[in-house]
C-alpha cells in the first residue's frame, strides 16, 4: 500500500541529494543546454551576419574608402538583421511542445523566467555577433580606431535588440507564419539602437569622446531590462490564451 501514497513530503530528516535551481538559473541553464545540444542553430545567425556584410562590397563597391565610410552602418544593420532572424525561434519550440504553458502556470515570477530566456538568447546570438564584428570591420576596412567603439556599442546594443525582439516573438508565437510579421513589428522599434550604435562607431573612427553614446545605449538597455520582460510576459499570456 505504501507505494500508492507516494506524494507525502519527503522525511524532514532526509537531505535531498538534488539541488533545485531557482527559476532564473533553471531557465537559463536549460536554454543554454538546449542550444548546446543543437549546435547548428547556434552558428546560423553568425553565417547570416557574415553573408549580409559580404553583400555590400559586391552590391555597391569594393572601394576601401567607400567601405570604410559605410562600415559602421553596415555592421550594425547586419547585426540587427541577424538578431531579428534568430528571434522567431525564441518561444516557438516552447509553445509547440507545451513547455510555455508550464512556464505560464508556474508560481515562479514570469519576469525572471522571461529575462533568463532573453539572456540565454543574447549569450547565443548577440554576444557571438559582437565577438565576430571586428572580423567584419576588417573586411569592410573599418579604421582600427573604430574597433573598440564597434565592440562596445554592440555589447551594449545587442541585448536591447534581444529584449525588444522578444516582445515581437511573444506576440507572434501563436501564429504559424510569424517570421515576416516579427520584422514588421520590431524593426521600427530597433531604429534608436541602430542610430546610436552606428553613430558610436563613427564617433570612434573620428576620435570623438564616446561616453555620451554609451550612456544613451546603456540607458536604452536599462529601460529595456525593466520594461520589456513585462511586455513579453503579457504578450505570452495573450498568445497562449488565444
Amino acid at each position: 500500500m505504501s507505494d500508492t501514497v507516494p506524494n507525502q513530503p519527503a522525511d524532514s530528516g532526509m537531505v535531498s541529494e538534488y539541488k533545485v535551481d531557482g527559476p532564473f538559473w533553471g531557465a537559463l541553464k536549460r536554454d543554454l543546454l538546449l542550444s548546446y545540444r543543437r549546435k547548428s542553430d547556434l552558428v546560423n545567425p553568425l553565417i547570416f551576419f557574415l553573408m549580409v556584410a559580404t553583400l555590400f562590397p559586391l552590391g555597391v563597391s569594393p572601394d576601401p574608402g567607400f567601405l570604410a565610410d559605410v562600415a559602421p552602418g553596415v555592421v550594425w544593420v547586419a547585426a540587427l538583421l541577424a538578431t531579428l532572424l534568430s528571434m522567431d525561434s525564441l518561444f516557438r519550440s516552447d509553445f509547440e511542445d507545451g513547455t510555455l504553458e508550464q512556464i505560464l502556470l508556474s508560481p515562479q515570477p514570469l519576469y525572471m523566467v522571461v529575462l533568463a530566456k532573453v539572456l540565454a538568447h543574447w549569450m547565443l546570438t548577440g554576444l557571438p555577433l559582437t565577438l565576430l564584428a571586428p572580423l567584419l570591420g576588417v573586411m569592410l576596412f573599418l579604421p582600427a580606431d573604430g574597433m573598440s567603439g564597434l565592440v562596445i556599442s554592440l555589447l551594449l546594443g545587442t541585448p536591447t535588440l534581444s529584449l525588444v525582439g522578444a516582445i515581437g516573438a511573444a506576440l507572434t508565437v501563436g501564429l504559424r507564419k510569424g517570421g515576416v510579421l516579427i520584422s514588421l513589428l520590431v524593426l521600427p522599434l530597433y531604429i534608436p539602437v541602430l542610430i546610436f550604435g552606428s553613430a558610436a562607431v563613427q564617433g570612434a573612427v573620428t576620435g570623438l569622446p564616446l561616453g555620451g553614446y554609451f550612456a544613451i545605449l546603456g540607458a536604452m538597455l536599462s529601460l529595456g531590462l525593466v520594461m520589456a520582460p513585462l511586455a513579453i510576459g503579457a504578450a505570452l499570456r495573450i498568445s497562449v490564451s488565444g
Partner: peptide, 19 residues
Amino acid sequence: GVKAVLTPRENLHWYASMH
C-alpha cells in the same frame, strides 16, 4: 511539455525549478 533533446532527468529537474 517535455524537451526532446533533454533527458527525462533533465526535464524533471527543470520542472522542479519551475514549481
